[in-house]
Write a protein that binds this DNA or RNA. Sequence first.
DNA 1: ACGGTAGATGTTAGCGCTAGCACACTTTCC
DNA 2: GGAAAGTGTGCTAGCGCTAACATCTACCGT
Lengths: 373, 373
Amino acid sequence: MRVDVGSSLSMSRLEGASVIVETVASALEPPFQRPRGNRRGHGRTTLADVARHAGVSPITASRALNKPLLVAPETRARVERAVAELRYIPNIIAGSLASSSPSAVAAILPSLDNSIFTDVLKGAVGALERSGYRLVLGNSHFDPAVEATLVETFLAHGVGAIMLTGARHAPQTQSLLTNARIPVVQTWSLPRRPLGACVGFSNFAASYAMAHHLIERGYRDIAFVSAAVARNDRAAARRRGYAKALADHGLVNDPSTTLESPFGLAAGAAALERILSVRPSTDAIFFANDVLASGAVLAALRLGLRVPGDVAIAGFDDIELAGHLMPPLTTVRIDRIGLGKAAAELMLEALAGTPFKGRRVDIGFEVIARATT
Amino acid sequence: MRVDVGSSLSMSRLEGASVIVETVASALEPPFQRPRGNRRGHGRTTLADVARHAGVSPITASRALNKPLLVAPETRARVERAVAELRYIPNIIAGSLASSSPSAVAAILPSLDNSIFTDVLKGAVGALERSGYRLVLGNSHFDPAVEATLVETFLAHGVGAIMLTGARHAPQTQSLLTNARIPVVQTWSLPRRPLGACVGFSNFAASYAMAHHLIERGYRDIAFVSAAVARNDRAAARRRGYAKALADHGLVNDPSTTLESPFGLAAGAAALERILSVRPSTDAIFFANDVLASGAVLAALRLGLRVPGDVAIAGFDDIELAGHLMPPLTTVRIDRIGLGKAAAELMLEALAGTPFKGRRVDIGFEVIARATT
DNA sequence: ACGGTAGATGTTAGCGCTAGCACACTTTCC
DNA sequence: GGAAAGTGTGCTAGCGCTAACATCTACCGT
């Protein structure tokens, strides 16, 4: 295994000491003995310092900060004053080691380039806001091996729950997760037998619906572009939904106009040009994500192609840009913020003890017919 | 102080145990005594278990994993086998408490909605990849109070260095940072007296250059739109640069066409309409970020306005969309990935002991004249 | 042969914090 | 009025891991 790159996003709650501006920490160093062999030379203020300053035991100081209701108001006030005067910053590392209770949950996203994932994040952060759990985020770059390493890292850091994207994961990921016995939420799709719970929608059905919409509009010579299906089970499901719709209506599904594409506006533009050169009779292109579709719409404008006159274009996701394009893009709307929120809430419920295993939350989808079809 | 929402992105290095697929952990639980009063009922495999299984002392097992060169190859192999067989996952929390050495650095960004910040992230993650430090990311939502709380949280978590966005910070942030005595890198601007080091460019000069470009092209009735300057020192500096350029060329700087705007394509569109209604004679609009400018270009297309015929539009940042618009957007290019990389490298150097304080790295800017002006 | 040095492993003592219990010292109740 | 049930605080003993030192073995040169 090699170096792994991940990323984490955390949300946290921290009681802040009001800050006294003068520097007092060293002046107030207690004159008492330090245990010999004390290794910390850096002298960061500890809870013991605070306790001494407040004239209470360390455990009382700890309680005053973490379980204020168990401490007499007057004692608590003394501790709080000591905290402020010493500019005490708790050592959360030590705290969570001692209590061995998770203080964070993790989410692993395949990318941060696409705003669809940051929207999910937004929803999750919102739901976690008042929970007391931080959210740590990993970026798997659509690589199952990186995902597995991230899972391992997060387990090593003691997260209480993990949110994954998609239904397909490395065997190692699954065994790590099973072994760790922590709640897992899969997002963006609805596996029949989720690892823990899942929140998503039927990518197959959504894609089928969009393909159906195109066929209904009268398009007959349709092309399809998605991300590489090998690394992306959502893209794979969308391609299946598209293929099924074509088959159900007796249309040919030409493999030469069923493309896999990298990500980005430029890639969408390239796919458009490629398809029109491979098969000029194409009358509609269904892109399995809006960034590609937007790239194509913008390219059409540059090339002087009329949309949908010369070629219709449909997308998937309903990103902000979709509605601002000229013409505005037909797409499939997914409530990404709701998805993130639901996933986070499932994790919180699981951490609170609610039965969780096997729950499947369908957030649905909506075909938004705008002007590119 | 209140609940704080942040976010973190981490990059990490973790030696992975090769995984044996059958579940062996419980079967291999050592038959030996457990110290009485052991509080952990969950039975996660510890390093002590591994050591026992390998027939060595815990410290040797620790060394075999963390300082392999200090351990005889044969012993190391035994430990590694034990790790694999027991599916041992190290407890990083405990490790970093014991060693009290930082294992992460933090970056605080004002937003994840704008791809310019995720680009910086990309650069930073790249530089940190092989360093052994994780990167933790906080999202301040352009709020200095949230930033202060994030700083506090990160200090509580023991990060070794912090990267901030912009030059302006709450007094509390500054005092926390001074007190913590850890390296701080400020990004996106070049304060004369940085808290630690800084990496950025002159927002004033870049903005001046773009305004100069517009004036040079013959535009005389120029408007300016930026984010709210009160919460964004970069926007403030850009507005000053714009104003200076106008003044230097004897042009009027009409306050009624100097706008502050929320973020997003829709906001850019609204700003365009607002300016053209307030002052129909406006011949150019300089947007201090590309998302607003792009929203305006797209809106112009919808409204049937010719760009630059009816109104010229300039942006700032050079996001991907800028080059794909029709017409492609004139903007200021910033090497954001390079910025993130340089900032991360500064942190690493500081952690390695290189003198650091006061270093100012100018990454420059480049006016990209495309077709909207 | 000897101390000397390097290499490999173990012993001890915490890192800073918090469960779990123990211990006053109330307050409440029949 | 005495047991029962709080309330507030402190002590002890770790959480799982690792720094620092101590050992304990080769192996070295002179």
